[in-house]
Computed example of a mutant assay.
Amino acid sequence: MEPTGAERTAHVVWVSEEARIASFHPVEGYLPRRFWNHAFFMGYLYSLQRRSFRFQ
Rank of each mutant, 00 (worst) to 15 (best):
P32M: 01
Q56L: 15
A6I: 10
R50V: 09
S16H: 02
A6D: 10
R34A: 00
T4P: 02
E18W: 05
Q49Y: 14
I21T: 10
S16Y: 02
E18F: 04
Q56V: 13
Q49W: 14
G5H: 07
A19V: 06
A19L: 12
E17S: 14
S23F: 01
R51P: 02
E18G: 01
S23A: 13
E18V: 06
Y44P: 06
E18R: 14
A39F: 01
A19H: 12
E18P: 10
F40H: 15
E7C: 01
P32S: 04
G43N: 15
G43M: 03
S52H: 15
G5I: 02
A10R: 11
E2M: 12
L48G: 06
M42T: 03
T4R: 13
R50W: 08
V12M: 08
W14V: 06
W14Q: 05
R33G: 09
F41Q: 03
N37R: 00
M42E: 06
L45Y: 02
T9I: 13
H11I: 07
R54V: 08
R54S: 14
Y46K: 15
A22Y: 01
G29R: 04
E7G: 04
R54A: 12
V15M: 06
F24C: 09
P26D: 10
R20V: 11
Y30R: 10
H38G: 03
R33K: 14
R51A: 09
P3V: 05
F55V: 08
Y46L: 15
E28F: 04
L45T: 04
F55R: 05
L31W: 11
A19M: 12
W14D: 02
V27E: 06
W36K: 09
V12C: 07
V27C: 01
A10E: 11
S47F: 07
R34K: 15
R34W: 08
P26E: 15
V12P: 00
G43I: 03
A22D: 03
A10I: 02
E2Y: 14
A39C: 03
M1T: 12
G29K: 00
R50I: 02
H38Y: 11
G29P: 05
E7L: 12
F40G: 01
S52L: 10
F41R: 07
A19C: 06
G29I: 08
L45R: 08
P26S: 14
E2T: 15
T9E: 12
R51E: 02
G43E: 07
G5T: 00
F53C: 09
L48C: 05
S47C: 04
G5D: 04
M42Q: 10
H11A: 05
W14S: 01
P32V: 00
Y30A: 08
R51I: 01
M1W: 11
E7Q: 10
V27R: 05
A6T: 14
A6Y: 09
G5C: 03
R8H: 13
T4S: 15
F55P: 01
Q49A: 14
G29S: 04
R51H: 09
A6E: 11
R8A: 15
F41K: 00
R8S: 14
S47V: 06
S52P: 07
V15A: 03
P32G: 00
E18I: 10
H25Y: 12
I21H: 00
R54L: 13
P26L: 11
